[in-house]
Amino acid sequence: MEGMSTIVKRVTPLLAGLIFLYGIYIILHGHLTPGGGFAGGAIIAGAFILLILAFGSSALNLKKEVAGSSNTESIALLMVVVLALMALLFGTKVFFFNYLPKGEPGELLSAGVIPLYNIFIGIEVAGAILTIFLALVIFKEESSK
């Protein structure tokens, strides 16, 4: 896949950084405002996809990128399950129990483990959407050959 025009190439990096930061904001405030892991992860994946669309996939080693994003995704999912399993050791010993201190409602550091779940789910969703996108790009490259 070829990259786009120079104008697009100049503007996209400026935008992509902002979009990336916005995604992180949505993930970190998942327990306070609407949004959370899935929405933020989709936004972060959007930033990456924008960059790939603007600069073209020929600059990338696609197979390696897919392996990387799919591994990231699996590790994040594994962390979510491990976090849930850790609850079997602490507190009332129930799966998915919120074992960290709850804090003040409305503060950024509050709600126990929920922000942690949000962060890992955010990474997972970003990885998954990026993997799907890259896989479709690989399909396209292979069939156009």
């Binding site: 899935f38 969703v125 959407i129 799907i132 896989a135 479709l136 399909f139 292979e142 069939s143």
Partner: peptide, 20 residues
């Protein structure tokens, strides 16, 4: 919606394979 995303991605992957 998340489930719908997964289903749509699967459908697209199969459709592209069929196209090839």
């Amino acid at each position: 919606i998340v489930i719908g995303l997964a289903t749509t991605a699967m459908l697209m992957a199969i459709a592209i394979r069929l196209y090839r």
